[in-house]
Design a protein around this nucleic acid. Sequence first.
DNA 1: AGCTAGATGAACATCATTTTCATTTGCAGC
DNA 2: GCTGCAAATGAAAATGATGTTCATCTAGCT
Lengths: 149, 149
Amino acid sequence: MTEVDRRVADFESQLKGAGLRMTQQRRLILRVLAEADDHPDAKGIFTRAFALDPTLSLSTVYRTMKVLESQGAIERHAFEDGISRYEHADQEHHDHLIDIDSGEVIEFSSDAIEELQRRIAAELGYDLVRHRLELYGRKKQPARKGGRK
Amino acid sequence: MTEVDRRVADFESQLKGAGLRMTQQRRLILRVLAEADDHPDAKGIFTRAFALDPTLSLSTVYRTMKVLESQGAIERHAFEDGISRYEHADQEHHDHLIDIDSGEVIEFSSDAIEELQRRIAAELGYDLVRHRLELYGRKKQPARKGGRK
DNA sequence: AGCTAGATGAACATCATTTTCATTTGCAGC
DNA sequence: GCTGCAAATGAAAATGATGTTCATCTAGCT
Ligand SMILES: [Mn+2]
Ligand SMILES: [Mn+2]
Ligand SMILES: [Zn+2]
Ligand SMILES: [Zn+2]
């Protein structure tokens, strides 16, 4: 709770600085995001939040996600299905590997690949501003005696 | 033209093998794709093809893109705006750098980054099946006397 | 407690893409 | 070349995620 409360408080001061208000709905959605350990979409966030406050509307979820994103409080990702998914932004940068059988999303980070991307952009005459990197894979089968089947 | 005709013929035999038909519309769309050197979306393809045959419909473009994709004749990409864009598949694998000022799409390929992705997936216990890598950058300014401004 | 601009909920609008369905057409067999 | 029929098409309607409108509510200030 302490951790979640700290994030909510942090965000409240950010809002103040932008002349925006901390509403019940924003508090609620922020709490749902802070407690999530996955990458829910708007409907998923709505479902979780609606369970705690059945007066919440889906419109407000969408609006709130834009506010949260513009304040840098969350990150938005659209994997292969094109649906926007969200996660809290107070973690170091990482990319995602998606299990194509289960849909599970696994986070990883690699300084080597980050550096390599910067270098590639530089060789093309560009400064790298951001990137999207998603790996789609299938669980390796445990090795069998006699090697690969 | 010879090159384009070869691609159309190649695709026609693929279709035959799948019990599908080579129609005027598919021929036309395939031609537009073969002549494109960019990454047009469905509407863009429709516009170019419609100029050559004003009886074509946008529905058919969408349907044809699915057929072409399922046959492996084209690749589909959805960059940040989420709209599907297409390109002919008979070229070696490459990834894309998008100029965030102009929207220009630049192709590149790097064996090093391909290998690194495989290694990262492997370390997580996965076989890499496919990936999505997009770099978003801004043109480097030419160096000035006195270094970075 | 009262004021007011920002926020909300509900309904409706948008936009890319898909689906329905009546009509057309590719093409295999004669 | 003509027929038959399943596949393909065009036009219109449906879908689904997301955005917008507008009347009403409320956070935050006095
Ligand atoms: Mn993540
Ligand atoms: Mn390309
Ligand atoms: Zn990264
Ligand atoms: Zn690649």
